[in-house]
Amino acid sequence: MTFNKHIANHIRDIPKSGIREFFDIVAQEKEVISLGVGEPDFDTPWHIREAAIYSLEHGRTHYTSNLGLPELRASICKYVQKHFHVGYDPRTEVIITVGVSEAIDLALRAVLNPGDEVLYHEPCYVSYSPSVVMAHGKAVAVPTRAEDQFRLTAEALAAHITPRSKVLMLNFPCNPTGATQTRAELEKIARLCIDHDLIVLTDEIYSELTYDNAEHVSIASLPGMRERCVFLHGFSKAFAMTGWRIGYACAPGWLTDAMMKIHQYAILCANTTSQDAAIEALEHGAHGVDSMRREYEHRRNYIVRAFNDLGLSCHKPVGAFYIFPNISSTGLTSREFSLGLLEKKKVACVPGPAFGASGEGFVRCCYATSLDQIKVAMDRIGEFVAESKK
């Protein structure tokens, strides 16, 4: 039997995640300090876990509405209005999903016809391009540059728009670069989206994790954008709830209705216990978010300074919990640097090309690990850089 011919062409040709491929290698090593996995090192705050325990103890173990618990949707709308200045109807314009990843998949499948083009900025989260392909769209990367602090510019976006362009995907603050967007640049991008009738998927999962008193602006809040935006958010990063797999999408009713058709047949509904925990997170989790943000900012300041002191140019990101230092001065490729650092110094970071071709010459380091571990890792990286230049 020729097994390969039975796999759908568009699935067979999708490469495996560069992050997961690299961490399969990491898993074979012992006593590694990881600056690689994009997951908070904090446990979910106790009061949120306690809400889940209460939910289970009281037998809340049944299906919810396809759209999710009404109480959670109402809490989400209050939260989004307060923090992002966009209003949604909890009855018809919010859908609770299995993480933001499912929300992205639903949105793409709901709007794309085969061959429609989806624009996204790169380096970017590893799932974006494959998600477009799985929805039978064409992924079009718009490179961003370190000189622009990896912000997407309207000028760069305009150069990639064609008559087949249908969707723009944004992720700010950005994984892997920590880049954020200014209001002024977002306004220019919004004008392009209106002029070219683009749907915008705005993934703002890191929005609570911004530093230096920076203003986070959602493109959905700008004039003329609410009706063409799918606002994507969740609980994994700010509330340290990665394993709970709970996210949400807010969009005009006509879009939410289309997404719900896919969700109800493929998933039915998100986990009930996680939904109850999410209500607690939104209603009483602000203090925990603030505490984690302060600690991340302290770590960011240290690790950015340490990389620049080593002569590895690193811009100071204003969001998320990643840095994206330039390692090209070592004469090594991103993969050579990452594999050599892992083999010789037992420190794991992710090669930049895992996030797209424009990531070559960079590595992603995640500072969602203790400062003590970061300090040891930076000492080892310093040794490796010195040895590489001999």
Results as ranks from 00 to 15, higher is better:
Ile267Met: 01
Lys237Leu: 15
Gln264Met: 08
Ile246His: 07
Arg245His: 13
Gln275Met: 09
Gln264Glu: 14
Gly234Thr: 06
Ile246Asp: 06
His284Asn: 10
Gly224Asp: 05
Gly253Ala: 12
Lys261Gly: 12
Trp254Leu: 03
Gly247Pro: 01
Glu227Cys: 05
Gln275Asn: 07
Gln275Pro: 12
Thr272Glu: 13
Gly285Arg: 04
Gly285Ala: 02
Arg228Val: 01
Val230Phe: 11
Ala258Trp: 06
Ile279Glu: 11
Gly285Tyr: 05
Leu268Trp: 09
Leu232Gly: 12
Ala258Pro: 10
Gly247Cys: 01
Val289Asn: 08
Lys261Pro: 09
Ala251Phe: 00
Met225Tyr: 01
Gln275Ala: 03
Gly253Lys: 11
Gly285Pro: 11
Gly288Pro: 10
Val289Trp: 08
Ile246Ala: 07
Met225His: 02
Leu232His: 12
Gly247Glu: 01
Gly288Trp: 02
His284Cys: 04
Gln275Arg: 03
Asp276Trp: 11
Gln275Glu: 11
Thr256Glu: 06
Ile279Met: 14
Thr272Phe: 10
Glu280Trp: 01
Ile279Ala: 15
Cys229Thr: 13
Ala278Asn: 04
Lys261Gln: 15
Ala278Val: 00
Glu280Phe: 02
Ile246Asn: 09
Ala278His: 02
Asp276Ile: 01
Ile279Tyr: 13
Asp276Met: 10
Gln275Leu: 02
Asn271Lys: 13
Val230Ala: 14
Ala277Ser: 12
Met260Phe: 05
Cys269Met: 07
Pro252Ala: 05
Asp257Ser: 09
Ala278Met: 03
Val230Met: 10
His233Glu: 03
Ile279His: 15
Ala240Cys: 10
Thr256Phe: 01
Cys229Trp: 00
